[in-house]
């Protein structure tokens, strides 16, 4: 299988704060890599760096054979058609005064694809795909609810039929009752068009149904990466276990689950050694030794001194 995206040793820091620390992974065509982790772990920075919306410090990002770290601005512009992003917050990613037609066709305009009439046809089809009425086309984006605006954002991302879509918390703002509809839509688009996704989310249940692979990020590093099912059935890293344990289910025992939570302490300033050590129930000499990502079984890697 050919890799759509192959990232090695990607590093980025803001000032002296290391946000992406030696990130490497490969994404195959038609597959989804889910990125889990809490806020501040670098998920969003990773997503944006992959599109070079943020310049990486070092490392390489090979997108279908082209190292996009070495591309010039105009080459990147051409590639943008093939790699799209769905942002987290549709209130800030879409101009509320713009007409929906103009919002959705913007990538086509950027790529100088098609005439206006053709674009109208494409927008109409895409609206149908994301579950919005065709009449939405001539309304202003501001007339729609948050959920509907996110559908508009998704329509904008898929209209150029890209190879790779980075979905940064794209269902976080949607109701549970419609969230599954969007996820199913993304899944069926993946099947039909062979799309690859980087699916960034803090919501483990959406990650579970979307991803083939899941990488768990903590303080800018991948601490565990495994096939989706394996990560849920045999989580190795203590942080992954903490994440899995923190899910609150709509069941009668939820109150008790809240009580027995070893509610997360909040990360203090980083120090040498394992960055998770101060929260880790298994820590030993971990504050001295910084663990590296190691493969423990085929496809399942973990960065923990215990493995």
């Amino acid at each position: 299988m050919d890799a759509v995206l192959s990232v090695s040793n990607l590093t980025k820091s803001f000032g002296d704060h290391l946000v992406l620390d030696d990130i490497s992974f490969t994404l195959k065509k038609g597959e989804t890599l889910g990125i889990a982790g809490e806020s501040g772990s670098g998920k969003t920075t990773l997503g944006r760096t992959l599109l070079r919306l943020i310049e990486p410090d070092s490392g390489s990002i090979i997108f279908s054979g082209i190292d996009i770290c070495k591309c010039t601005a105009s080459e990147i512009r051409k590639l943008r058609k093939r790699m799209q992003i769905i942002f987290q917050n549709p209130y800030s990613s879409i101009d509320p005064y713009e007409r929906v037609f103009d919002v959705i066709r913007a990538p086509l305009v950027n790529a100088s694809a098609g005439r206006r009439a053709e674009q109208r046809k494409m927008v109409r089809e895409t609206l149908g795909l994301v579950g919005l009425p065709v009449s939405a086309m001539d309304k202003r984006a501001g007339e729609f609810s948050g959920g509907e605006r996110q559908r508009i954002a998704i329509a904008r991302a898929i209209i150029t039929s890209p190879d790779l879509i980075i979905a940064d918390e794209c269902v976080s703002s949607l109701d549970v009752s419609v969230r599954a509809g969007i996820l199913r839509l993304l899944l069926s688009l993946q099947k039909e068009l062979g799309l690859s996704y980087i699916f960034i989310s803090h919501d483990l249940s959406s990650l579970k149904c979307m991803s083939h692979w899941i990488a768990v990020m903590y303080h800018g590093r991948f601490v565990e990466i495994a096939p989706s099912a394996v990560l849920f059935s045999e989580p190795l890293h203590p942080y992954t276990r903490e994440l899995l344990a923190s899910v609150l289910l709509p069941e009668t025992g939820a109150r008790e689950a809240l009580r027995d939570s070893g509610s997360a302490e909040f990360p203090s300033s980083p120090f040498s050694g394992c960055l998770y050590a101060h929260r880790c129930p298994m820590r030993d000499k971990c504050s001295m030794r910084c663990p590296q990502l190691k493969e423990v079984s085929p496809g399942h890697s973990v960065a923990c001194n215990f493995f």
């Binding site: 994440l243 923190s246 609150l248 809240l258 997360a264 909040f266």
Partner: peptide, 11 residues
């Protein structure tokens, strides 16, 4: 909020 943090805040 994050799930790990959410639990603490809800508690």
């Amino acid at each position: 909020l994050d799930a790990t943090v959410q639990k603490g805040v809800l508690a």
